[in-house]
Amino acid sequence: MSARSLTLTSARRRRTDVVARWVLAVATVLALVPLVLVVYYVVNKGASAWNTQFFTKDPTGNSTGFGDEGGLKSAILGTIEIVAIASAIAIPIGIAVALWLTEYHRGGWLGNVVRYFIDVMTGVPAIVFGIFVYLLLVIGQPPASAYAGWKGAIALALLMLPIVARSAEVVLLLVPESLREAALALGAPRWKVIMRIVLPAALPGLLTGSLLAIARAAGETAPLLFTIAVTSGTTFDPGQRMNSLPTQIFNNLNSSSDPGLISRAWGGALVLLAMIFVLNIFARLVSRRSPAIR
């Protein structure tokens, strides 16, 4: 029996190792290139459109040299308000659904049916929710036959709901069973176990999931085109037509090839990007504060 060799393995193995490392590195770079390019273009083209007027005036739709160019005030405020309403609807309901699935119906057939529908809903294209709300709320009922901000918020909420519910369920399942047992064995009623033990432990993950849903909804155009229509004035009344960033960007690009309008569309895209960026940082800060499951 020969002595065991402690030198490196065969040349072929070493070659394979090097090749595999390179393949992975190249794949990573390939994935990053479009991402970096998108951010670069949006920042580059969008930043030049940002000025005081951009944030303080409503859109006018005027091309360069045809009067007041306006800004995107109504679109920015509209997006914030509509997404806030949609979140207020979708996040509590989504988390409630997830709690129902994890805390009360784990493994039951009814739970599986609900979970299946949530998965299907996650895959439904956004425009379908737009059409649904359009048919049901915009033209469906004669007295309600008008575009309105709250209808857009409902379309977005429908879109967010499965994302929130599914991500919350995954996070709640990560909360160790031993914590629930510890609390139950102390003589805590189940609702208190959920409120005081399970939810705090899952909070960072719940926030991340909710923010994913918000980020997704903030950029959706199709459901809003059918529900809030396009308008330019600023309003805080969700019963009125409202403006939003995605629809305003759509409108700018749709109406002409004027460089001024296109530049303002880039500016709007940058605002969306910045909003999502800020939300993400906020979420990270919050989850770093609480010592729980990440």
């Binding site: 031993s178 102390l186 003589g187 805590a188 432990a201 010592p291």
Partner: peptide, 27 residues
């Protein structure tokens, strides 16, 4: 009838004090 489990399972989101007080507050 209280119970102590195999693996120590203090509540991760709570301080030492709050862990002991948890039973009182939860119940």
């Amino acid at each position: 009838v209280g119970m102590v489990f195999q693996k120590p399972n203090p509540f991760p989101t709570m301080s030492i004090f709050d862990n002991v007080a948890a039973g009182l507050r939860l119940t």
